[in-house]
Design a protein around this nucleic acid. Structure first.
Lengths: 344, 344
DNA sequence: TGTACAGTGGAAAACGATTTCATTGCGGCT
DNA sequence: AGCCGCAATGAAATCGTTTTCCACTGTACA
């Protein structure tokens, strides 16, 4: 038994005391214009008087919706997600929803078990940052009809027809690369994100496009497969800087990776940006306080969250969303970690 | 209406097809040892066959518990919370609970509205990082009896009798200060956390104790009231370093503050730790990658989360917790941001 | 005068599980 | 043989709302 001992009134108690039916109490509370003003006032007064608090669980059961949404992330400790989650949560609250959070550690089994929450009616929809689709689809049927309300945020599943909110990762890869190229860098090293993840693949694709367009050859040894973590930034730098031919710049596929890279370069005695330039992606808050402040391609994190939440809730409530796919603008933020290539 | 079109079977369908009663189905699913093996197998097979998925909302209503817990934070973007939340979430999952997250921005109204979720039966209990008690208490009655299941994590409410999990902030303040003193620092500046918050007050108290014990006088002008943010670290440094008598060390009440301080000192041209030492509190993951790596008093963030979750769920389930208050050990982690005071 | 209709409000059926209470049948014990 | 107890099961009550009908009133209109 629990420690809480509130005295609880049910709707019936209110009804009795107000001398009306439960239906009327319910209406007075939820559809105020469906009862006369006098009755409504009467009911509300009794509600106030008795301190009645409705049991939302019962309402949810009857209505078939929980008014919860779920958000599924691979790694809550990545500061990338904090502003996104906060924005989601704010929009959700504004529309009467609560947010259930799940750190899946990128584990398919966890993802799936979490997704079951919509089947068990515990949540009305899901925002996922995973590119894995946690539902079995019948390829013969249209995708949208088989899906519960869900939106893919930041990280996309390849499948068409799934609502998505994110950025153009190919363009991000291109823009970052062009920035380095424009500073005269030719030997650019890349520390990618988790290789099997689409965003990383697309950034790499953008990188290659830009290099090719500038007719700069790329030595495949200059590509280090990371996993979006700080540690992979460190490992990447250490690995690459021990090679005979060293790069003049690092393109890190995440700001966290770049933080690790900056750290490792500092340890190895290199000066950024005099010896080596570093650019990141994401635009996490901390990127402005690294040493030196990090040049990065910033994503509109808050907007990402807002759009995801709005889209999902529209979907849940059967409102037709203006669009099913939102690609939000990114922005190159030049700070002190990139500079002209040093003439050796 | 929602887009999801799963065909749903209710327990009655299973019962009918298996030729048993709903009670038996329920038991086969939830209390396997209360039905014979043959019936259980039969039921499970039908469940499998029809792809039956129970409606947890209905179960929750009947059982009077949602199997959700809520966690309330002042600021989700502070990396301090990420490991805590993750640990909470893992323990909760292990015990069959989901976690609802709320960023309250330290706003009392939001806190209160969120807390209502336990009254409305949407959550079974709350972990709060706020020192404000979101319930009205009758001072005549014992505290515990009036409270819903809740635990105070990290940040404490002054009231006795509330389950708490946290660290000894006075000792933390003392330890950090003693570290600086042992390096020869005498003019120590302090950038506090949010002044009205207990953890900040206690760290300050510990600081003063240590100073007094060492018979080192403290100039009140060396205390800058911050708010645990990066920005307050920057502002604090800028403010204090423009004074005539400058400190040789900064004691920042949070790692984020310290990150800001490091940034500002760098901008002002000071070398850390040669010119000035900086120490933080928290032990966030990033503290090891700052420039220079940050000396800090680390909190056992993961354990904090684990204990909070366990304590709360014990409370919810009426198990008697071994103890109601957990003070976990902190640890001074000496890195490169502190050093002996320079002989001027 | 009769009919239609809008405005109210009530009774009772959902929602879909869990749990209580009663019943059955069987084995063991005396 | 008779009785007790226990394991296995079912019927029905229950959780606390929302919602669907339907009834009733009074007014407007032909």
């Amino acid at each position: 038994m629990s420690t809480s001992q509130f005295k609880h009134f049910a709707m019936g108690d209110i009804a009795k005391k107000a001398g009306v039916s439960m239906a009327t109490v319910s209406r007075a509370l939820n559809n105020p214009d469906r009862v006369s003003e006098t009755t409504r006032k009467l009911v509300l007064q009794v509600v106030e008087e008795l301190g009645y608090i409705p049991n939302r669980l019962a309402a949810s059961l009857r209505q078939g919706r929980s008014r919860h949404i779920a958000i599924m992330l691979p790694d809550i400790t990545n500061p990338y997600f904090a502003p996104v989650v906060r924005a989601i949560e704010q929009v959700a609250m504004g529309r009467g929803y609560s947010v259930i959070l799940k750190d899946t550690q990128d584990d398919p089994a966890l993802e799936r078990s979490f997704t079951d929450m919509v089947k068990t009616r515990q949540v009305d929809g899901i925002i996922t940052n995973s590119q894995r689709l946690p539902f079995d689809l019948d390829p013969k049927l249209p995708v949208l009809q088989q899906l519960p309300p869900m939106v893919n945020a930041s990280e996309f599943c390849e499948l068409d027809g799934i609502p998505k909110v994110g950025v153009d990762n190919v363009a991000i890869g291109r823009d970052a690369t062009e920035h380095l190229l424009s500073l005269g860098h030719r030997r650019i090293a890349v520390i990618t994100g988790t290789p099997h993840i689409l965003s990383s693949q697309q950034r790499e694709q953008g990188f290659r496009q830009a290099m090719q367009a500038a007719a700069v050859p790329f030595d495949e040894k200059m590509l280090y497969p990371g996993d979006y973590s700080c540690e992979s930034g460190i490992a990447g730098v250490k690995h690459i800087m021990q090679m005979k031919i060293r790069p003049t710049a690092f393109f890190c596929f995440g700001d966290l990776v770049a933080v690790g890279a900056l750290h490792a370069l500092r340890e190895l005695g290199y000066l950024v940006p005099q010896d080596i330039s570093v650019i990141g992606v994401d635009g996490i808050a901390l990127s402005q306080y690294t040493a030196p402040p990090l040049t990065t391609v910033a994503q509109p994190l808050q907007q990402l969250g807002e759009h995801s939440a709005r889209l999902l809730i529209d979907l849940i409530e059967g409102q037709i969303p203006e669009q099913l796919v939102h690609i939000l603008p990114h922005q190159l933020v030049v700070r002190a970690s990139t500079g002209p290539v040093s003439v050796v």
